[in-house]
């Protein structure tokens, strides 16, 4: 059985994008180790509400590590530190020690303005996908699924790239506020599959152009993104995006 722990929680409060923002502090008492980080925040919010205060706002939804909604920067690491990739909702309090100070901040990047407290606006990611992160395939009667043979290795690699949950941890961790890991994962998934090849050049150009337009930074290959990615996306994807993009531009 996990032990209960007590710790000091510092959490970011910010009332809208223009507000300056500040940390609030609270002593959290006797939190069971098998409580997830978000459940701990639920406990915090129960306490706040019972005191008549406004709850701490943060994004969360599936709590299974797949929806990509949760977005907390915990003790200096997006989603908090775990041995293998995990989202905030998969972080358990047993990872912390009694007497710790836990600091919770929002994703901080010009591309992700704060809406309230630790809830940020990530519609920029949607806009990048809308610019070209798809295979144009009309609903209806495409050819039989097995008519396209895809080597297992390629399918598996495409699947790894496709695992990206669009949480934005890569941008949050990047000292350049670059969205390259996100963009390259989608470009890679579709570049690896024969279905995606016809539009590959157009896609790489359109998505990079949109990414730049939205104010994300230039990648300097620090690998911080890959280190914090909850789905362990690799910067090999970024190399592939560079390749696709440069080839596309040289063919223009």
């Amino acid at each position: 059985m996990d032990k209960n722990i007590s710790f000091k929680l510092r959490y970011w409060r910010q009332n809208g994008p223009k507000d300056k923002g500040h940390f609030d502090e609270r002593e959290m008492k006797d939190i069971p180790g098998d409580t997830s980080f978000l459940e701990m925040l639920d406990i915090l919010n129960e306490e706040l509400v019972s005191e008549g205060k406004e709850p701490f706002v943060f994004d969360h939804d599936c709590r299974e590590g797949i929806c990509g909604m949760c977005s907390l920067y915990i003790n200096g690491t997006p989603h908090g530190k775990t041995e293998r990739g995990a989202t905030t909702c998969q972080l358990y309090m047993r990872k912390f020690k009694d007497g710790d100070t836990i600091t919770v901040e929002p994703w901080r990047s010009a591309g992700f303005p704060v809406i309230k407290d630790c809830m940020v606006d990530r519609t920029a990611f949607d806009k990048i996908i809308q610019a070209g992160g798809y295979v144009t395939a009309r609903t209806g009667q495409p050819q039989d699924a097995n008519a396209i043979l895809i080597p297992k290795q390629d399918a598996d690699e495409a699947m790894d790239c496709a695992s990206c949950i669009g949480c934005g941890a890569c941008v949050a961790a990047c000292k350049n506020g670059s969205a390259m890991l996100f963009v390259s994962s989608k470009v890679s998934q579709l570049a690896l599959l024969p279905q995606g090849r016809p539009e590959a050049a157009r896609r790489a150009k359109a998505m990079v152009a949109k990414m730049d337009e939205l104010g994300f930074g230039n990648c300097t290959n620090t690998r911080a993104c890959e280190a914090v990615c909850p789905k362990c996306e690799s910067i090999a994807n970024i190399a592939r995006l560079n390749r696709e993009f440069i080839a596309a531009k040289l063919n223009d």
Partner: peptide, 19 residues
């Protein structure tokens, strides 16, 4: 299944490349 494959959904494949 046909539609999803056309969209680039990376379903698991066998070594021969079939689904």
């Amino acid at each position: 299944i046909d539609q999803c494959v056309a969209q680039g959904v990376p379903f698991a494949r066998e070594y021969g490349g079939m689904l």
